[in-house]
Amino acid sequence: MSSALEVGDIFRRHGPAYVHAHDGHLGRVERRVMSAIELCRTAALGGHIEGCQACGTVRVAYNSCRNRHCPKCQGAAARDWLEARAGDLLPVPYFHVVFTLPAEIASIAFQNKTIVYAILFRTAAETLRLVAADPKHLGAGIGLIAVLHSWGQTLSYHPHLHCIVPGGGPSSDGTRWIACRPNFFLPFRVLSRLFRRLFLQALRTAFEAGQLQFFGDIAERADPQAFARLLTSAGRQDWVVYAKPPFGGPEQVLAYLSRYTHRVAIANSRLVSIADGKVTFRWRDYRHGRRPRAMTLEVGEFIRRFLLHTVPDGFHRIRHYGFLANGQRAARLAACRVMLAAQVPKAEGRAEPMAKVAPTPRPCPCCGRPMVTIAIWYHGQAPPGGPFWNDST
């Protein structure tokens, strides 16, 4: 077992053979994702050389690919996003609501990601806002952050939306804050039924407009009668909408978001081994008390499952709605803070924007003195050769 195993290692060793074997079935996005992860933090993407003038130590650092599907590149992106969002949090409890698509709808989503993912975002947000605005339930205008995930623990295709929602919102006349009951947000049976109805209506509209494609195992659904039967069947099922335990305050929300917003299908830390053309990785069995297990897949199947979760170019996987929508978020949050008597002492949990810290030189691993950049090269260039210190240094 090697803790240093990465998805990039798997793509470098077996990616070319996989691309050759599936040449007619790989799209542009999948090819680009594989190429980016293969090259991430290698000399091919460029980098810089830094050294210590005190002891002469030299260290090479390669550039990252910055692809949003790469397990190595999401840490910095998550930190930047959290820094921008920290000041948006309110001193109220936050709820975590999950909307999941049934399997027969998921198969349509896979072949029509841009259209169906957009419907998922729109109808889930509309469901929350409509039910919350109903005086029978809350009677408030809410805000939310929605994050798309498409994977299960074993890399199966499982599209679902994680929604982080403040526990309350402004009244309809905008004069007061209406808070949820403690540990209760909205009735989830009501949410589930409304989400199912809104989603199926939107899916039917997309079908009638000729926006959906069907091929392979679901090609027969292109027939209007077959599609109508599918909608009828899906409309009789219970759609899974559930809530996880509410967060205690803004700090917990930030900790959660740091794990979820920029997550990819599988983290490198879950990989166990690659041997004899097979990949072994860790997963948690949530149906049996989060029991840790290991799964071994043929390397081609592992790559296939990983690529199931690529997102179309230009598609935003994180979206904001209600008073957290991008257009007038600052003004709306200011109004919310006034309603909440928001001059809250820091001890009560008000999240403050993270201060930007100027980058400091990395210390030398040998003597601890600051390292300095002594050479840079870019994508397509050859790394510079030494020596990097002259005798007078």
Score class of each variant (00 low, 15 high):
residue 323 F to H: 04
residue 129 R to N: 14
residue 18 Y to C: 09
residue 114 T to L: 14
residue 176 R to K: 01
residue 146 A to V: 00
residue 178 I to M: 13
residue 162 H to G: 00
residue 3 S to C: 13
residue 6 E to F: 11
residue 171 S to H: 03
residue 103 A to H: 12
residue 113 K to I: 01
residue 232 T to Q: 07
residue 363 P to C: 02
residue 139 G to H: 08
residue 393 T to E: 04
residue 125 A to K: 10
residue 162 H to R: 01
residue 57 T to K: 08
residue 252 Q to H: 13
residue 13 R to P: 08
residue 87 G to D: 07
residue 361 P to K: 10
residue 147 V to E: 04
residue 189 R to G: 03
residue 70 C to H: 07
residue 131 V to C: 12
residue 198 L to Y: 01
residue 163 C to Q: 11
residue 246 P to V: 04
residue 297 L to F: 15
residue 207 F to I: 01
residue 143 G to M: 05
residue 209 A to C: 00
residue 23 D to T: 08
residue 99 F to R: 08
residue 35 S to M: 07
residue 56 G to T: 05
residue 192 S to R: 06
residue 26 L to M: 07
residue 109 A to W: 08
residue 168 G to D: 01
residue 54 A to R: 02
residue 192 S to E: 06
residue 248 G to S: 02
residue 4 A to L: 13
residue 119 I to V: 07
residue 390 N to I: 07
residue 375 A to M: 02
residue 304 R to A: 14
residue 352 E to D: 04
residue 19 V to D: 08
residue 24 G to T: 02
residue 338 V to Q: 03
residue 314 G to Y: 10
residue 352 E to Q: 02
residue 134 D to L: 09
residue 114 T to H: 14
residue 346 K to C: 05
residue 236 R to A: 06
residue 224 P to T: 04
residue 10 I to H: 04
residue 10 I to Y: 05
residue 331 A to K: 06
residue 95 F to R: 02
residue 208 E to A: 05
residue 318 I to F: 06
residue 272 V to Q: 14
residue 198 L to A: 02
residue 325 A to Y: 05
residue 142 I to P: 10
residue 8 G to E: 14
residue 4 A to Y: 11
residue 189 R to E: 00
residue 387 P to Y: 04
residue 168 G to L: 01
residue 128 L to G: 08
residue 193 R to L: 07
residue 149 H to A: 06
residue 186 L to C: 10
